[in-house]
Design a protein around this nucleic acid. Structure first.
Lengths: 148, 148
DNA sequence: TCAGTTGTAAGCATAAATATTACAACTGAC
DNA sequence: GTCAGTTGTAATATTTATGCTTACAACTGA
């Protein structure tokens, strides 16, 4: 399988909750746990990662999370990088010890690395093109459909 | 972490070996095991996936693998899809049971799915733009550097 | 002071990847 | 026809990451 972990969609879900409920309610890990149906400790860990990346603020003691920057200045790429703690940020996992005595084995990184990077860049460029302002707009769209 | 599994880079490595050694040697799972330093049973499993996708032919009994189509008609996307057996082909893993009683939880898929798809499409488009002909060209480039 | 909350550690359960052993079935050369 | 070499596949083990859960110290605002 090997998909991008659900921490990413969880993090986006968290921001959608902050957008939607932030003014009315205190958005705590317990609140988010109920909306996502994910354990509050996991939520707190993700909140910590997002906080560490400067994307949101978490109020210790009193509780509650809020965005740390204007929404159009937070991209999906920021979120992806905050929660997807990949060594060196590399999307593709390589087999570890290709044979240095084989002409192909010894050169496989020279042959492949630039191509893999191109692919990863294409994905990250698209991630960077989506902001939390877009998310909020669409969230409101669907929530209003409910109300009607 | 959650990277794309090394089966993909392994599969590309396999094709690089076929390109380079296919005329001179019989490219068996044992041969490939030595070049990649990966267990021959794993190699055979990947060979089976590539064969199943119609990308190469494996000679039973006698042994050996070879490309099943002209190299410029095999893309990295073909290989990716052959070996990355993701349910529904989705790059992003979603938290399973968002709360249907929460306005955000009940709509999170409507809000997010199109955006995730855009990101995945960007990546797959780049995967599709690289063919095994490109791979062979670069492989020869680096191997010739060795010889000089 | 105290109820509610965050941050974090520790242990467990689950899932996927990869390694490994084993062996039946197959093929081509002799 | 035999046989060495190979593929296909099953079964098991190991490793690694994820996510769940319990627990609790530290913190904050009322």
């Amino acid at each position: 399988m090997m998909q991008i972990s659900s921490r990413f969609t969880l993090a986006v879900h968290i921001f959608a909750c902050i957008d939607t409920f932030g003014n009315e309610y205190k958005v705590t890990s317990d609140f988010l746990s109920k909306s996502t149906n994910v354990n509050p400790v996991i939520i707190r860990k993700i909140l910590g990662q997002l906080k560490g990346a400067g994307l949101l603020k978490v109020t210790r003691g009193a509780g509650g999370a809020a965005a740390a920057r204007p929404l159009h200045e937070i991209t999906f790429l920021d979120i992806y990088r905050a929660v997807e703690c990949i060594e060196g940020g590399e999307l593709f996992h390589f087999h570890e010890n290709p044979n240095p005595a084989c002409p192909v084995g010894m050169n496989i990184h020279f042959i492949l690395d630039d191509k893999l990077l191109r692919i990863q860049n294409a994905m990250e460029k698209e991630l960077a093109s989506i902001t939390l302002a877009d998310l909020k707009k669409d969230t409101e769209k669907y929530l209003n459909q409910e109300t009607m």
